[in-house]
Measured scan of single mutants.
Amino acid sequence: TETRTFDSEEEAKKAQKEAEKQGRTVTITRRDDRWEVRFD
């Protein structure tokens, strides 16, 4: 599991799309003013 933090939802969604192309499961969580993206 890898976790990355982004400043914008746009960036988080971009990372999510990339990871899903690779067949990974992605979870996006809102953390205050940041977006946390978890790759499984």
Rank of each mutant, 00 (worst) to 15 (best):
T1Q: 11
T1D: 11
T1S: 13
T1W: 15
T1E: 11
T1V: 13
T1G: 13
T1F: 15
T1I: 13
T1M: 12
T1L: 12
T1C: 12
T1H: 13
T1P: 12
E2W: 15
E2M: 11
E2Y: 15
E2K: 08
E2D: 09
E2G: 09
E2I: 13
T3K: 06
T3I: 15
T3C: 09
T3V: 15
T3S: 08
T3P: 07
T3G: 04
T3E: 04
T3F: 13
T3Q: 06
T3H: 07
R4T: 08
R4F: 14
R4Q: 12
R4A: 09
R4I: 14
R4V: 12
R4P: 03
T5L: 15
T5P: 02
T5N: 06
T5C: 05
T5G: 04
T5V: 15
T5H: 09
T5M: 15
T5W: 15
F6R: 00
F6G: 00
F6M: 02
F6D: 01
F6L: 02
F6S: 01
F6T: 01
F6Q: 00
F6P: 00
F6H: 01
D7Y: 14
D7A: 12
D7G: 10
D7I: 08
D7L: 11
D7F: 14
D7R: 09
D7V: 07
D7N: 10
D7M: 12
S8N: 10
S8H: 04
S8I: 03
S8G: 03
S8D: 06
S8W: 02
S8Y: 03
S8Q: 03
E9M: 08
E9D: 03
E9W: 15
E9P: 04
E9N: 03
E9R: 05
E10M: 07
E10T: 06
E10W: 10
E10A: 11
E10H: 07
E10Q: 08
E10Y: 09
E10G: 05
E10V: 09
E10I: 08
E10L: 08
E10F: 08
E11R: 04
E11P: 02
E11V: 03
E11Y: 03
E11L: 06
E11M: 07
E11H: 04
E11W: 02
E11A: 09
A12S: 02
A12N: 00
A12K: 00
A12P: 00
A12L: 02
A12M: 03
A12D: 00
A12F: 02
A12W: 01
K13Y: 12
K13P: 00
K13G: 04
K13E: 08
K13I: 14
K13N: 07
K13C: 08
K13W: 09
K14C: 12
K14T: 10
K14H: 12
K14F: 11
K14W: 11
K14S: 10
K14A: 14
K14G: 06
K14P: 00
K14M: 12
K14E: 13
A15W: 14
A15G: 01
A15H: 08
A15I: 07
A15S: 05
A15E: 05
A15V: 10
A15Y: 15
A15L: 09
A15F: 15
Q16L: 10
Q16N: 02
Q16S: 08
Q16A: 15
Q16H: 05
Q16W: 07
Q16T: 05
Q16K: 12
Q16D: 01
Q16F: 11
K17H: 11
K17A: 14
K17E: 14
K17F: 12
K17G: 06
K17M: 13
K17S: 11
K17V: 13
K17N: 10
K17L: 13
E18N: 06
E18C: 07
E18L: 09
E18S: 05
E18K: 06
E18F: 07
E18A: 10
E18I: 09
E18G: 03
E18T: 05
E18Q: 08
E18M: 08
A19D: 02
A19R: 02
A19I: 06
A19L: 15
A19H: 05
A19Y: 14
A19N: 03
E20Y: 06
E20C: 07
E20N: 06
E20S: 05
E20G: 04
E20A: 09
E20T: 06
E20M: 11
E20I: 09
E20D: 04
E20W: 10
K21T: 09
K21N: 11
K21I: 09
K21H: 10
K21F: 09
K21G: 13
K21V: 07
K21Y: 09
K21E: 15
K21P: 01
K21M: 12
Q22L: 13
Q22M: 13
Q22P: 03
Q22R: 10
Q22A: 12
Q22G: 08
Q22H: 12
Q22I: 11
Q22F: 12
Q22V: 10
Q22C: 13
G23D: 03
G23N: 04
G23E: 02
G23W: 04
G23C: 09
G23T: 01
G23F: 04
G23H: 04
G23R: 02
G23S: 03
R24F: 15
R24A: 11
R24H: 14
R24T: 07
R24Q: 13
R24S: 07
R24G: 06
R24N: 07
T25D: 06
T25S: 10
T25Q: 11
T25E: 08
T25N: 10
T25P: 07
T25M: 08
T25V: 13
V26R: 00
V26A: 15
V26M: 03
V26S: 12
V26Y: 02
V26D: 01
V26W: 02
V26I: 04
V26E: 01
V26T: 10
V26Q: 01
T27W: 07
T27K: 07
T27N: 05
T27L: 06
T27P: 01
T27H: 09
I28V: 11
I28R: 01
I28L: 06
I28A: 02
I28D: 00
I28T: 02
I28H: 00
I28K: 01
T29P: 00
T29W: 06
T29A: 07
T29S: 08
T29Y: 09
T29L: 10
T29K: 07
T29H: 11
R30I: 10
R30W: 12
R30K: 15
R30D: 02
R30V: 10
R30P: 06
R30S: 05
R30G: 04
R31M: 10
R31T: 09
R31I: 15
R31Q: 09
R31P: 02
R31K: 14
D32E: 13
D32R: 05
D32V: 05
D32P: 03
D32H: 11
D32Y: 06
D32T: 04
D32W: 05
D33K: 05
D33T: 06
D33V: 03
D33F: 04
D33I: 03
D33L: 04
D33R: 03
D33Q: 08
D33H: 07
D33E: 09
R34F: 14
R34S: 08
R34Y: 14
R34D: 04
R34Q: 11
R34L: 14
W35K: 00
W35F: 04
W35I: 02
W35R: 00
W35E: 00
W35V: 01
W35Q: 00
W35A: 00
W35S: 00
E36G: 01
E36D: 04
E36S: 03
E36V: 12
E36P: 00
E36L: 07
E36H: 05
E36A: 03
V37Q: 00
V37H: 00
V37C: 03
V37M: 08
V37D: 00
V37S: 01
V37N: 01
V37F: 02
V37G: 02
V37P: 00
V37W: 00
V37T: 02
V37Y: 01
V37R: 00
R38Q: 09
R38N: 08
R38F: 08
R38D: 04
R38G: 04
R38M: 09
F39A: 05
F39P: 05
F39D: 06
F39M: 10
F39S: 05
F39L: 08
F39K: 02
D40Y: 13
D40N: 11
D40V: 14
D40A: 10
D40F: 12
D40S: 13
D40L: 12
D40T: 13
D40G: 10
D40E: 14
D40W: 13
D40I: 13
